[in-house]
Write a protein that binds this DNA or RNA. Structure first.
Ligand SMILES: [Zn+2]
Ligand SMILES: [Zn+2]
Ligand SMILES: [Zn+2]
Ligand SMILES: [Zn+2]
Lengths: 171, 171
DNA sequence: TCATGAATGCAACATTATAACATCGAAGAT
DNA sequence: ATCTTCGATGTTATAATGTTGCATTCATGA
């Protein structure tokens, strides 16, 4: 099997072909919306693109700033509605521990978000680990708890930042 | 082995002896602070008690209201400083997906928080599951990711609420 | 062309959290 | 006992994040 710029499980590398990430995200978004009958309007597409500026989760008001710089009129509801839509289509995820939003790597398949987030460079990697999901489900079953939604966010230091400098750990 | 009002893994029951929970929490807090040399002042003790009003995570401004009703002068920094202290001592946890705070069941042992949270009654149960923690750690190791902090929050419906009424699932 | 409903613009507001600085008070040093 | 010091608390203002309600626009189909 051909290996793309990064495999499913890799942490996004510093020098990777991010244009490919963006292309793939847009293509996936178009397909997902077509299948669900939802309308991927220009505004929503624009916001999705801004989120995909990088693999680092970005705040709603940062997105607002970016939108404004792009010449759009933009007030908070503008961005929050777009975020609601994109999140509803599974095209982005909210990172609860950061109040921020990040693009989904594989919106075609339904999944819970599991994230590794680097405190230094901000980059977030999305996992889709069946073993973690299975263990959590099993524990919920043990407790007779009906699971609706899982938030799993690991904060730490990514491979790239570990190589760069082991000394200056935080902030 | 004797079974206390609830075992470590149980979801807090509707009719359990909550006074015992509170007593235990206060005793644990006193011990933890004594060992760490931190000062569990009257204000901090009061806030910890208010958090232990129930097993449902409570917001900072709700705590403020409670404090005010108790006759304390209270502004946001009052409560946030107390929350920082209690959280620093491991006596409470912040629930990221709710912007709320809940008492820790076992502050004497260091641990990451893993929570099952009921959308209906608000009750949160804290897990300390080694298998979940181990799997997450293993996946981080696979990804060459240095894990600092884990946020794991499961939203769903608790055993009690499931028994009450399976129909009205949400909201 | 017109009716309809979804999407967006816009103003105000609600909620959550922090910064900056003044004051108080416990605990040890003199 | 008094002083000193530093952590804890009080107070005001403000930042950051998110929502409500209503007017307007726009795509879509009758
Ligand atoms: Zn990329
Ligand atoms: Zn990094
Ligand atoms: Zn209890
Ligand atoms: Zn419940």
């Amino acid at each position: 099997m051909a290996r793309s710029t990064h495999t499913d499980r890799d942490f996004p590398q510093a020098g990777h072909d991010h244009a490919a990430c963006i292309d793939e995200a847009l293509a996936a978004a178009a397909e997902v919306c077509r299948l669900s009958g939802a309308r991927l309007t220009e505004l929503r597409r624009q916001v999705l693109l801004l989120i995909w500026d990088s693999h680092a989760p970005v705040g709603a008001y940062q997105l607002l700033d970016k939108l404004s710089r792009d010449g759009r009129t933009a007030a908070p509801p503008t961005i929050y509605r777009a975020l609601d839509f994109l999140s509803g289509q599974g095209l982005i995820h909210r990172i609860e521990s950061l109040n921020a939003y990040v693009g989904c790597r594989d919106p075609r398949r339904p999944h819970v978000g599991q994230f590794l987030i680097c405190r230094e460079c901000g980059t977030a990697a999305e996992l889709e680990d069946a073993e973690i999901a299975g263990t959590v489900r099993a524990r919920c079953a043990d407790a007779d708890f009906e699971m609706h939604h899982l938030t799993l966010e690991v904060l730490g230091r990514c491979p790239g930042c570990r190589r760069t400098g082991p000394g200056q750990a935080d902030r």
